[in-house]
Simulated scan of single mutants.
Amino acid sequence: MDWKAWQRRWDRQQERYLPYREQSFEAMVQCVAEAARGRGRVLDLACGCGSVTERLLKGIPEIQVVGVDIDPVLLKIARAPLRGRNG
């Protein structure tokens, strides 16, 4: 199954309801980057399909992100961007 495609589909759907979603993610990554100063671990509670997790890992590659969610299907989708990532 192409879990990455499911994540992209979710992101497109959410953009209809939250027009400034990407800008919010960018601001969030900047805040975390400032607080983490390029090191440490971030806990993404209720990570869903990993939209925030993926952006954190792209924006701050030095940090470790731990995603937690109650839904096992969403966790499978969230793991898609992590495939092949060291750490």
Rank of each mutant, 00 (worst) to 15 (best):
G59E: 09
Q7F: 01
A33L: 02
A46Q: 08
V42Q: 02
W10G: 03
L74I: 00
L45G: 05
G38A: 07
R39Q: 13
V68R: 07
K4G: 13
R83L: 14
E62D: 13
W3D: 06
L82K: 04
L75M: 03
E15L: 12
L82E: 10
N86L: 14
M1K: 05
L43R: 09
V42P: 04
M1N: 07
V73T: 12
L74C: 05
D44H: 07
G59N: 01
Q23E: 15
V42F: 00
L82Y: 05
G87M: 02
V42A: 02
V68Y: 04
R21S: 06
P61W: 00
A36H: 00
G87K: 09
P19G: 07
A35T: 11
A36Y: 01
R55W: 03
D71S: 15
R21C: 03
D2P: 11
R85I: 14
C49A: 11
A80E: 13
E34Y: 08
K76C: 03
A27P: 00
K58L: 15
A27G: 09
W3H: 13
E62C: 00
L45H: 02
G59I: 02
C31M: 09
D11Q: 10
K58C: 12
W6G: 02
A27Q: 10
M28L: 15
D44C: 10
G50S: 06
P81L: 02
A46G: 10
D2M: 06
I60P: 00
G67P: 08
I63A: 09
R41I: 09
K58P: 02
G50Y: 00
V32C: 08
